[in-house]
Lab assay of single mutants.
Amino acid sequence: MKHYEVEILDAKTREKLCFLDKVEPHATIAEIKNLFTKTHPQWYPARQSLRLDPKGKSLKDEDVLQKLPVGTTATLYFRDLGAQISWVTVFLTEYAGPLFIYLLFYFRVPFIYGHKYDFTSSRHTVVHLACICHSFHYIKRLLETLFVHRFSHGTMPLRNIFKNCTYYWGFAAWMAYYINHPLYTPPTYGAQQVKLALAIFVICQLGNFSIHMALRDLRPAGSKTRKIPYPTKNPFTWLFLLVSCPNYTYEVGSWIGFAIMTQCLPVALFSLVGFTQMTIWAKGKHRSYLKEFRDYPPLRMPIIPFLL
């Protein structure tokens, strides 16, 4: 059985960083990364991007050496992705923050609204209902991160945790300040508006959870398998008939419901920014589905049925 020789060059300087002799033909890129780490321990596998061309796409960890368009002496180019952190850690951090930050404003801890309001309670029912909904949303997200989601990528750049936390924590503080303010004004149409908004919120939260469970069942634990998601017997998953990412559709719907319930401008802005970002993600995933699966359902749109 022939063996391969693998040289790894710096993608920027073309400097030879490592030479691997007698590499098995069936070795994966993940195994080559581990061998590279032995000579350069500062670059652990998650930091490494190996590619066939200095400006090309990163090879997948599961790619097999003998199936790549290389000879028995293969040249790979290395790029440092920077310090990495696990997706689970990032999600837990960015979701735990809003949960606790919101509660600080809800309980009106000292130095927020003035001494005479310390630890007082709002007289408006919608304020307490909003706290329950907000807390439920982020507790749900935390539990899904721990027990439901299966991540195709193990890590992301460390800098992302600061960007994500600034976004989630900042908006949580902004909306919580106004919703729990002693001078907060309840919704214009009173109980009817709150009940309608609560119904929207609850339905969308159930829908979002149902989609996450359906997506989880598509991917076996520990794998990166991708399949076309289809509706199940659960009615909340029937939205798969019309959109590629109904989890985002339901998520946006939840925040629209919360915005109607609280009639709070920061919540509306958070919903708008979230919708914009999720639309970008949904379009990317939709394109990926179309590219990977020739039999992908043609009627589906990325996030909004028939429109977007």
Rank of each mutant, 00 (worst) to 15 (best):
D53H: 14
F100P: 12
K291I: 00
T185N: 04
L104T: 15
P187N: 05
S49L: 06
N247I: 11
N180A: 07
G190A: 03
G154V: 05
T73S: 08
P45A: 13
S135L: 07
K33I: 08
D217G: 10
R123M: 12
E292Q: 09
C133G: 08
R47N: 00
L183R: 13
N164E: 09
K55Y: 02
R14C: 02
G170E: 10
Q84R: 10
P45N: 15
S223L: 15
L299M: 06
L99R: 02
R14V: 06
H149L: 04
L290S: 06
P110L: 07
K285T: 13
Y4F: 01
K16E: 08
T249P: 06
A173S: 10
K33R: 09
K285G: 06
T145A: 11
Y168H: 03
P69S: 09
G82C: 14
F107D: 15
E292Y: 14
L81E: 01
Y44A: 01
F105Y: 15
S223W: 13
F36C: 05
I132K: 13
G114N: 13
H212F: 05
C165W: 07
T145V: 04
M156F: 00
E292A: 10
G82K: 15
T166L: 00
A83T: 10
V88A: 11
T37C: 09
W43P: 05
T276N: 06
A46M: 04
T37R: 01
T262M: 07
L290Q: 07
F111Y: 11
K12Q: 03
K116E: 08
M301R: 11
A83R: 00
F19T: 06
P302V: 08
Q193L: 03
T120L: 11
H149Q: 04
V90F: 05
A172Q: 00
G222P: 00
N208K: 08
F119A: 00
L242R: 06
W238L: 09
G71R: 14
T225H: 13
P98H: 03
E31Y: 14
A96T: 10
F107L: 11
E94C: 08
L198V: 12
V6E: 14
L68G: 02
L239H: 08
P187L: 10
V90D: 14
V243R: 02
V88W: 08
G154N: 06
Q48M: 01
P302G: 03
V243D: 02
H212K: 03
T28R: 02
Q192L: 12
D295E: 06
S244H: 15
G253W: 07
I101R: 05
E292W: 04
R108N: 01
H26Y: 09
R150Q: 13
K285S: 00
E31T: 03
T249H: 15
F91C: 00
V127G: 03
V267D: 05
I303D: 01
C204S: 12
F136R: 00
H3D: 12
A173D: 01
L269S: 03
R51C: 12
W174S: 12
M261N: 03
K60Y: 07
H26P: 08
A268P: 05
L290R: 12
P297S: 07
P297K: 00
M301A: 07
Y106H: 04
Y177W: 04
G170V: 07
T120F: 03
V88R: 01
A176C: 13
C264F: 04
I228G: 14
H3N: 03
V267G: 07
V88F: 12
R108L: 05
A74S: 07
S135P: 02
G284V: 11
K55P: 12
L99P: 11
K140E: 03
P302M: 06
Y178C: 12
N160C: 14
F136S: 10
L104G: 12
F236D: 09
H286D: 09
H134A: 07
L158M: 01
E24G: 09
S210T: 04
E144Y: 02
T89V: 10
I101G: 07
T145C: 10
G253E: 04
N208Y: 04
Y296M: 01
F105H: 15
G71C: 10
K55M: 12
A46I: 14
M175G: 01
Q193V: 14
F107A: 15
S122G: 08
L215Q: 04
A46H: 00
C204G: 06
S58C: 14
D53E: 08
L308Y: 14
I32G: 13
K16A: 11
A199N: 15
C133A: 04
C133N: 00
S122T: 06
L92I: 10
L265I: 05
F201I: 14
M261P: 01
K12L: 13
G274A: 12
A191W: 00
V6L: 09
S86G: 09
P54R: 07
P266Q: 04
Y77F: 06
L68M: 06
W87R: 03
Y138N: 00
I85Y: 15
W169S: 04
F201T: 09
C165N: 15
H286R: 10
P157M: 12
P229Q: 03
F36G: 14
L215P: 02
Q42N: 15
V109M: 12
P302Q: 00
Y189C: 09
A282I: 13
H40A: 06
H124C: 04
G71A: 06
H181M: 02
D80G: 09
F111V: 12
R219G: 06
F236N: 14
D118E: 05
R294K: 01
D61A: 11
V202M: 11
S210I: 15
L99F: 11
M261W: 04
G82D: 15
P157T: 03
V64L: 13
T188K: 15
Y102H: 08
E251D: 08
P220Y: 15
T28P: 10
I29C: 12
V252L: 08
S244I: 03
L142R: 01
K227T: 09
Y4V: 13
I132Q: 14
K224R: 10
G56S: 09
E24W: 11
C165L: 12
M175N: 13
Y138C: 08
Q48A: 12
H26D: 11
K16M: 02
P231Q: 14
F258M: 05
E62G: 11
C264Y: 05
V88Y: 01
K55D: 00
W169E: 02
A199I: 14
S271H: 14
F258H: 13
Y296G: 06
E94T: 02
T166W: 11
R51L: 08
I8Q: 01
Q192K: 03
R150C: 09
G97D: 00
R123P: 06
Q66V: 14
Y178E: 00
L206T: 06
F119G: 01
C264L: 09
L50W: 12
Y177G: 06
L68R: 10
L103Y: 13
A176I: 09
F209C: 12
S121L: 05
S49R: 00
L68P: 11
R14Y: 05
G154S: 07
H124R: 08
F36L: 10
M261V: 07
Y113R: 14
L206V: 13
F275V: 08
V88M: 08
D295H: 13
F270S: 07
G207W: 15
P246Y: 01
F162T: 06
A27S: 11
P266T: 08
I101A: 03
I303P: 00
D21R: 04
G170T: 07
D10I: 09
G253A: 04
F209L: 11
E251A: 08
R216E: 15
T72S: 13
V126F: 14
T93K: 07
G170W: 14
A191G: 05
T13I: 11
Y230R: 02
Y230S: 13
L104R: 06
D63Y: 06
Y77N: 10
L65M: 04
T262V: 09
E251P: 02
L183H: 09
Y106L: 13
R294A: 00
H286Y: 03
I200W: 11
L218Q: 03
F91M: 04
L92P: 04
D63T: 05
F111R: 03
P246H: 03
L299H: 01
E94W: 01
K55W: 08
T72N: 08
L215R: 00
V273L: 13
S223F: 05
T279I: 12
Y289E: 14
Y296H: 05
G154M: 04
H124L: 12
R219Q: 07
A74V: 12
A221S: 12
L9F: 03
P98C: 13
G82R: 12
H137C: 15
T237I: 08
G222R: 12
H149R: 02
I139S: 14
Y95H: 03
L81Q: 13
Q48C: 03
A176Y: 04
L17V: 14
H149M: 05
